[in-house]
Design a protein around this nucleic acid. Structure first.
Lengths: 137, 137
DNA sequence: AATTACTCTACTGTTTCAATAGAGTATAAA
DNA sequence: TTTATACTCTATTGAAACAGTAGAGTAATT
């Protein structure tokens, strides 16, 4: 399951995608519309900025906005920043790989299955973008 | 990411699948072969027994064994017992659904994507069984 | 100068995770 | 019927992660 942090982050990105091209959006506005604790949201947005997905402007008329067209940022990219690995096990993670001590990765049956699962998940998350997070209506 | 508990549980099931039809297997044997802390493994196996996947026999010549042919138990079933939900959000879980407060599930863009992801994952995990967890060689 | 709004570090309470302890019960064989 | 074996069950513990908060600081605008 995704952490609350990731859930909030994705919702915020969806809101910023919906407002793309309309200038900076206040943290407080995102927090209110998406019902996210504001101080928590501050941390999340800052992290997304540090990792290049968001940009910001300080002072009056400031706020956060997407660094690029919403269709350019995949969900996989966003989730890796906030949540970390997408794979179900460290030994099958592409971006957060950790060697499996206590088992032979060449023969491990579990690993094979988890690779299939990872690929199925990534096929979706590498194709979908934060533009797909925009709410209906 | 899956918890250690789930990882251990699946490995143990793989071992029992490999030894299906050959009588009870000692917890200590599984623990040793799969390098799982034995007391931790006890809890896990008991939980799998309570939920019908395993059976056991006490006393000398006792141990754990699969309740049914390994091909009959899907990974989804096993994982739901040990780990809980397979979906990435409670509001898209089939077996552990929780209503999403603070958002309208009918219009939520995030929910749509998470349903796709869930379905892609389940397509694998509902088809693969613990027979697929048997190690090569 | 005053106001606005993001920035950054640190902290806190709660929950989950991972593992362990130890007494209890059932079974089988000698 | 005793003994050894092996699963059963509840409780506990330390560490880490999670979720959220606090507050001082910096930059930009008017």
């Amino acid at each position: 399951m995704l952490s609350k942090k990731t859930q909030y982050g994705l919702k915020a990105l969806g809101y910023l995608a919906a407002n793309f091209g309309e200038g900076p959006v206040l943290i407080s506005e995102i927090a209110k519309k998406k019902k996210i604790p504001i101080k928590f949201l501050e941390n999340i947005l800052l992290q997304l900025k540090t990792n290049g997905i968001l940009q910001s402007k300080k002072g009056k008329g400031g706020g956060y906005f997407l660094a690029d067209n919403p269709k350019k940022t995949t969900l996989a990219a966003a989730m890796r920043i906030i949540e970390g690995p997408i794979a179900l096990l460290p030994c099958v993670s592409l971006n957060f790989y950790e060697k499996c001590k206590d088992c032979d990765e060449k023969t491990c049956g579990l690993k094979k299955v988890m690779i299939s699962t990872r690929d199925a998940t990534l096929k979706i998350l590498e194709k979908k973008t934060i533009a797909d997070l925009i709410d209906a209506i």
